[in-house]
């Protein structure tokens, strides 16, 4: 029987929630279309990770394990994916959209002669391929796209589907894989990791985003204090990542991360379309901005018009009280 294959993204030994979202959707589609849903883990500890994955009910977990997957590098990942597709022969390969999967999607599609769609927000199966929706024009509108290829590869924006557990009989199958250093066409020299980088923004339940209005040390302290009260991840607009105030991996938007938290609080952010492209799917949007005409207020559920330096102290104080009452 044909299978829908979900590639499982792993970060520091932990499965990324966004790939469980994709797997859950594939499970659902497999049920509807009488197909199977399976998963693929490519990691240095793939077999350990397969244990974590069983609760989500894929019928088969394929593993490819090799020390070369300790850090992301496109050459070995492409080789492994191509091998997996040739041996599993899936109908589709679905990925969570991450910097690592975006790095290889096009190359894999060229390698396999397969259709590819990136960053979709919805997907379904048709008689002959995949139909999907993708935000376009800086996420101002949505396009409906279709592939009609025997094999379609696609990446899915985080937060597009809910994660659901599933009890099923799950087999684990290892795919033998070898790789020698001569095959590495590129060399990883160094990884520069930001110290503040521990919370995965795309998975955070609460996101505090700082913009150009956060001008100085005092402003950043207020942002940090708010984040710690709410146990939130801190993100930023391009204005501040570009200025080197926040690490580039914290940028939210068209060029940065897509976040879809329960609560997003934008502080001193104007709401340019390229920023909004990365946060418009948040459940509750709060904006603090001194300009009552700032475009962010067009999409905010709660817009607080005022100077952030005056708003944040009582806001934090009140939230602390709320917390302590719990």
């Amino acid at each position: 029987m044909s299978t829908l294959l979900t590639y499982i993204s792993v970060n520091d030994g932990k499965i990324k929630r966004s790939s469980l979202e994709v797997l859950s959707r594939c499970n659902e589609l497999a049920d509807i279309h009488n197909l199977t849903s399976s998963a693929l883990i490519i990691d240095k500890d793939a077999s350990n990770i397969s244990e974590q994955l069983k609760a989500y009910g894929p019928s088969v977990i394929y593993t490819i394990e090799n020390p070369v997957f300790k850090n992301h590098l496109n050459t070995p990942l492409l080789k492994a994916l191509s091998l997996a597709v040739h041996s599993i022969k899936p109908l589709v390969v679905a990925f969570a959209s991450t910097e690592s999967t975006k790095d290889i999607l096009g190359a894999l599609s060229a390698n396999l002669g397969a259709a590819s769609l990136s960053d979709v927000s919805e997907f379904e199966l048709t008689e002959t391929g995949v139909k999907a929706k993708r935000p376009v024009m800086a996420s101002k509108i949505v396009s409906s796209v279709e592939s009609s290829d025997r094999l379609t590869l696609f990446t899915v924006r985080s937060g597009s589907y809910d994660v659901s557990l599933k009890t099923a009989e799950t087999k684990v199958e290892n795919i033998p894989f070898s790789f020698n250093d001569e095959e590495l066409k590129i060399t990883l020299k160094e990884i520069i990791t930001a110290s503040s980088d521990k919370v995965d923004l795309s998975e955070a339940e609460t996101v505090i985003a700082a913009g150009r209005g956060v001008k100085d040390e005092e402003g950043r302290k207020l942002v940090e204090e708010l984040a710690s009260v709410l146990n939130a991840g801190i993100g930023a607009s391009r204005a501040l990542t570009e200025a080197g105030v926040y690490d580039p991996s914290l940028q939210i938007g068209q060029t940065g991360k897509v976040v879809s938290p329960q609560l997003y609080i934008g502080i001193g952010i104007s709401g340019a379309i390229q920023h909004v492209a990365g946060m418009a799917n948040s459940k509750v949007i709060v904006a603090i901005n001194k300009d009552s005409d700032a475009p962010i207020f067009d999409i905010a559920d709660y817009g607080i018009v005022g100077d952030l330096y005056k708003i944040l102290p009582p806001f934090i104080d009140e939230l602390k009280k709320v917390k302590s009452e719990k």
Partner: peptide, 30 residues
């Protein structure tokens, strides 16, 4: 390999409520 079937509006987000006035009060209210 892929074709565009059409375009549609994004599921809309309406502007919510704006709070203007005395900082201490609106901050605590929200």
């Amino acid at each position: 390999k892929t074709k565009i079937l059409g375009y549609e509006e994004k599921p809309g987000r309406e502007a919510g409520k704006k709070y203007e006035g005395e900082a201490d009060e609106i901050a605590r209210q929200v």
